[in-house]
């Protein structure tokens, strides 16, 4: 395995560069995935059947908490990658841990939010609108959940193996993933919640 020391650690082998490019292309596909979900949501938004409308079920507080927590976690993972570039393993691990904790809080609030929807009669089966809403949010939430496990595995690996080209590469790619989820959330926040509450 040839290691190119002129590059940052995560880019330092050919395979690492392939992994990063491949992941960017994957994110392109993810943009289409969420784009399609948004298209579906916008089409079905007004088709509430006998069920509630967006304005009737959205609550601002949990959404603001979720937004705040996820945006912060995106910042902390950025700090984590910065620490990684400086070679400060412990700082990096701490930031990653904080990121995952924030992600966990996000997920907790989202579960609360889903339960709230259930209680006000907006279940998965209620209408086309609720199905589109819960599928869009659920897909994002599932991504976060998967990310929590993935991040945990990476923390364990960095802890055990140290900062190698491989672990640095994985951490960097994970950070791309996490930032991407944050970007998706910004769209969800603006075009689903804010638009729905107005």
């Amino acid at each position: 395995m040839k290691i190119d020391h002129s590059q940052p650690l995560e880019y330092s082998t050919h395979q690492n560069q392939l992994n990063i490019l491949g992941f960017w292309i994957f994110l392109g596909a993810e943009i289409m995935l969420f784009g399609t979900l948004f298209m579906g949501y916008f089409t079905l938004e007004g088709r509430t059947g006998a069920g509630p409308t967006p304005a009737q079920i959205f609550e601002i507080t949990p959404v603001l908490i979720e937004t705040f927590v996820l945006l912060t976690s995106s910042f902390t993972i950025g700090l984590g990658i910065h620490a990684m570039r400086l070679g400060r393993k412990n700082a990096m691990l701490s930031f990653f841990a904080i990121t995952l904790l924030l992600g966990l809080v996000f997920l907790g609030v989202e579960i609360y939010e889903f339960m709230h929807y259930y209680h006000v009669g907006a279940t998965y089966q209620t209408s086309a609108f609720t199905a589109a809403l819960l599928t869009t949010l659920g897909t994002h939430g599932a991504h976060v959940t998967l990310g929590l496990f993935w991040g945990l595995f990476i923390i364990l690996q960095v802890k055990k193996r140290g900062l190698t080209p491989q672990t640095a590469n994985k951490s960097f790619i994970f950070s791309l993933y996490w930032h991407f989820l944050d970007v998706v959330w910004i769209f969800i926040f603006s075009f689903i919640y804010l638009k729905g509450m107005m």
Binding site: L33, L44, Y124, S127, A128, A131, A132, T135
Partner: peptide, 25 residues
Amino acid sequence: TVALLMGTTDRLFATNFFTSDNGGM
């Protein structure tokens, strides 16, 4: 992927993406 996911939930979990009821399209 998304279309099939919606179709699957319509069939298995009785959602209303593409049905004729409750706003499905």
